[in-house]
Simulated assay, not measured.
Amino acid sequence: MSTSSNAPYHHGNLRQALLEAALIILERDGEAGLGLRDLARAVGVSPAAPYRHFDSRAALLEALAVTGFQRFTTAMTDVAQSHPGDVLTAMGKTYVLFALNNTALFRLMFSPQLKRDNRPGLRMAADAAFATLSLVSGGDTPGGRIAALAAWARVHGLAVLLLDGQIAIEAGEDIEALITEIVDKH
């Protein structure tokens, strides 16, 4: 395989390496700083190599959002299994902390630009994430869907308010304690 560097390059899982590098670039430079040629350079492959895995920048963004939803779903499932007490509060805190720790990825996951309806893989990943919340909030009972949507709206709104700096964090304030207190008001 030809590369953009002088040394030959061989990678066992180029797609995964591209996604991991893209996640780093996304968090560092934002979505605008993410291009397939720059990604190829960062991984040390030819400019054409990423196109074997992503036919366009939009396909790369979709794959990143799917990866984000998969990681998010895993985190939500793990917290649901490890917090038998108030699972909904623990999941809500996990949701907000995921957003704060993965700002650009979180924004990409919920970007209207991706239009999930036109991207079945992304729709499935987003639905799987919602299903974890729905199970905990009684999604299969009468009114369960509304309860799940209300819980989602609460934590998503809190996450966006914090990301946008709309909630001032006072000096010395414990952000995790604040999140828990707000989310616990369900």
Rank of each mutant, 00 (worst) to 15 (best):
L114T: 08
A126V: 05
V87C: 10
H83Y: 11
A125Q: 02
P120L: 07
P120W: 01
G92P: 04
V96N: 09
A90E: 12
S111C: 10
G138T: 01
T94Y: 05
L97P: 10
G143F: 00
P112C: 05
L135K: 12
K93H: 12
A147S: 11
Q81L: 14
A104K: 06
Q113P: 00
V96L: 08
F130N: 01
D117G: 12
V96K: 05
H83F: 11
T89L: 07
F98M: 07
A90Q: 07
A129Y: 02
D117P: 01
F110H: 15
G92Q: 05
G144W: 02
A80M: 09
A125I: 04
L105M: 15
A128K: 09
R107G: 00
H83V: 09
L97D: 14
K115M: 08
L122Y: 02
G144N: 09
T94A: 14
R107M: 00
A125V: 03
G121P: 01
R145Y: 03
K115E: 14
L114N: 06
A99P: 04
M124R: 13
P120D: 01
F106P: 00
A99K: 11
D86P: 05
M124E: 14
R107Y: 01
I146N: 04
D78M: 05
P112A: 13
T132Y: 01
N102M: 13
T94N: 10
Q81E: 15
A99D: 10
T94V: 14
T89E: 06
V136A: 15
S137F: 00
R116D: 08
P120N: 02
S137A: 13
L133R: 02
Q81G: 15
L135C: 11
R145P: 00
S137I: 01
F106W: 15
T141D: 06
T89Y: 08
L122E: 03
A148F: 07
D140Y: 05
A126N: 15
V87R: 14
L97N: 12
M109A: 07
G92L: 05
G139H: 06
A99V: 03
S137G: 06
P112S: 11
P142M: 03
A125R: 07
Q113K: 15
G143S: 07
F110R: 13
M91H: 08
A90D: 12
D86C: 06
S82Y: 05
V136Y: 03
A153Y: 07
A80K: 09
P142E: 04
A150M: 07
L149F: 03
G85W: 13
F110E: 04
D140E: 13
N118P: 00
G143D: 04
F130Y: 14
A80I: 06
D78F: 08
L135F: 01
R116A: 15
A148C: 11
L133H: 02
G121R: 12
A80S: 12
